[in-house]
Nucleic acid binder design. Structure first.
Lengths: 214, 214
DNA sequence: AATTGTGAACACCTTCACAGCT
DNA sequence: AGCTGTGAAGGTGTTCACAATT
């Protein structure tokens, strides 16, 4: 619906935070919110909030602020959360299983439909509502079940193969937790979460005298 | 050891990537590496690699490049990985348990010594080498066992209490997986990993026509 | 009176390009 | 000849500050 020129990753991340605040204050029955109030709750400046939002439209009313429900709907649509995303997890280890059962996913509009693994011992096991299937069935399953998102939680050595299978099957986005750089061809979107990098960022900040908490 | 003025978060993240590449090529017996080679493997420019490294010292040799083993040692020290970090997990749910057993942690210099939970049913349970203890024992344990890092994997509503306990006990850094903004006072370092934000960043990129894969 | 939307200023980060060292 | 280290240029993201609007 929207067609912004270029939106920074930081802006998109902040939209997620605004959304969380909006949900909370909407639950308290508040009708209207100012950029200053949103800024306070998310630890950014009010100008930042207004710039972020104005990249997608003029959602506010001068002198009054933003309508909470309306703004929430706008951001949901911008982030593509006005629909359910059919998702699979590749790698049915502890992390994959934990994510599958996580409330973060089910409470949002993400439905984890199945897990895949190459370990015969895990096939058929149930994790929440999903079942673990053999990796060989991945392509067929993605196409038959109209899966849009794949989450990779395999060991690093299998992650590229997982990405290739997902890409071949026509997946639209990949969230990669394996500690390795993946190659994916153009229409597929890739996002990485690397736990070691986060921990090392923390030890750097602790070990060093410099830096500032975030 | 080093005392750089100000180092950006992006630089620190890239150091983690360089480290991974260095480990790999060192394993292959390579002695020397150029910024161009490091850049190629990590998808940045060679100038970026040199700038990142030069913030901490002159590690390279003009005309020759960087000594692989030496550079690895430097980065390990910079990131505070030349020691073992005693760590606890607060929230012994699926995610906390998965992280505790994760190779990412044990393979690096992180030792997860114990988990804490407020659910009586979980107390005493073992996860890998660690045992789940009651949350009330946290402060005493952190001090007695000289714990430096706390990982929060509780539900959002308990996360601030967990952070307060950790801070009170004198923890040095917190890695927070709970989807909420935590307040921590000054000497404590905080880093957040928010799975919902990552997923929403992905759906934004898919839903929208704009953007570029990363 | 309050608060948005935004051009301009500012700060930060990345890339260029080359002098300097081996 | 090859490659680093870095000042300068270029680019991107953030904050300021104020005109516009209710």
């Amino acid at each position: 619906m929207s067609s912004p020129r270029k939106v920074s990753d930081s802006t998109v991340r902040r939209l997620s935070f605004y959304l969380r605040i909006l949900k909370e204050i909407r639950g308290r029955g508040v009708q209207t919110v100012s950029s200053a109030k949103l800024a306070e709750s998310t630890r950014v400046t009010s100008a930042q909030v207004r710039k972020d939002l104005s990249a997608f439209g003029n959602f506010g009313v001068r002198g009054r602020g933003y309508d909470v429900a309306e703004l929430q709907d706008h951001i949901l649509r911008i982030l593509g959360l006005d629909r359910t995303w059919r998702t699979i997890v590749v790698g049915a280890g502890r992390l994959g299983s934990a994510l599958t059962s996580s409330e973060d996913f089910s409470r949002q509009r993400f439905s984890i439909v199945s897990l895949f693994d190459n370990d015969a011992a895990k096939i058929g096991r149930r994790v929440g509502d999903a079942e673990v299937r053999p990796i060989e069935d991945l392509e067929r399953f993605v196409q038959a079940e109209d899966i849009q998102i794949g989450i990779i939680t395999t060991p690093a050595k299998y992650a590229q193969e997982a990405a290739d299978r997902l890409a071949r099957a026509g997946i639209r986005g990949i969230l990669n937790f394996a500690p390795t750089r993946l190659e994916v061809a153009d229409p597929v979107r890739l996002r990485n979460v690397n736990l070691a990098v986060e921990l090392e960022g923390l030890t750097f900040a602790i070990a060093d005298v410099a830096g500032d908490s975030a």
